[in-house]
Simulated scan of single mutants.
Amino acid sequence: MSHARREYADFQALAPDAYQTLAALGALAAKAGMDKQLIELVKLRASQINSCAFCVQYHILQAERLGVPVDKLNLLVAWREAPQFSTRERAALAWTEALTLLTGGVGDDVYEQARSEFSDKELTYLTSAVASINAWNRFGAAYRWTPPARQMQAGAAAS
Rank of each mutant, 00 (worst) to 15 (best):
E89L: 05
D109V: 00
N74P: 03
A98M: 02
L66K: 14
S86G: 07
E89Y: 01
Y111N: 03
L61R: 12
P69C: 10
P69F: 02
A92F: 01
F85Q: 02
A98E: 08
L75N: 15
E97L: 04
R88D: 07
Q62Y: 05
W95H: 10
A91R: 02
V110E: 01
V68P: 13
F85T: 04
L73H: 07
L76Y: 06
P83C: 00
L75E: 10
D109T: 00
V106A: 08
L76P: 07
A78S: 12
L66A: 15
L61M: 13
G67M: 10
G67H: 13
S86C: 02
D71T: 14
A78Q: 05
A91I: 03
G107R: 01
R90N: 09
E97Q: 14
W95D: 11
A92L: 04
A92K: 03
G67W: 11
L76W: 06
Y111E: 06
A63I: 11
G105M: 07
P69I: 06
L102P: 13
D71M: 08
V106C: 10
R88I: 03
S86T: 15
N74F: 06
A91D: 08
A82W: 01
Y111P: 01
D108N: 04
R65A: 15
W79M: 04
T96A: 14
L99V: 03
V77P: 02
L61S: 11
L93I: 10
V77G: 11
E64R: 15
T100G: 08
R90I: 06
L66H: 15
L75M: 12
Q62R: 14
A92N: 09
L102G: 10
A92V: 05
E89K: 05
V106I: 14
K72P: 11
P83M: 00
G105A: 09
G107E: 03
W95C: 11
R90W: 01
V77C: 04
D109R: 00
Q62I: 08
T96W: 02
L101M: 14
T87W: 00
Q62S: 14
L101R: 15
A63M: 10
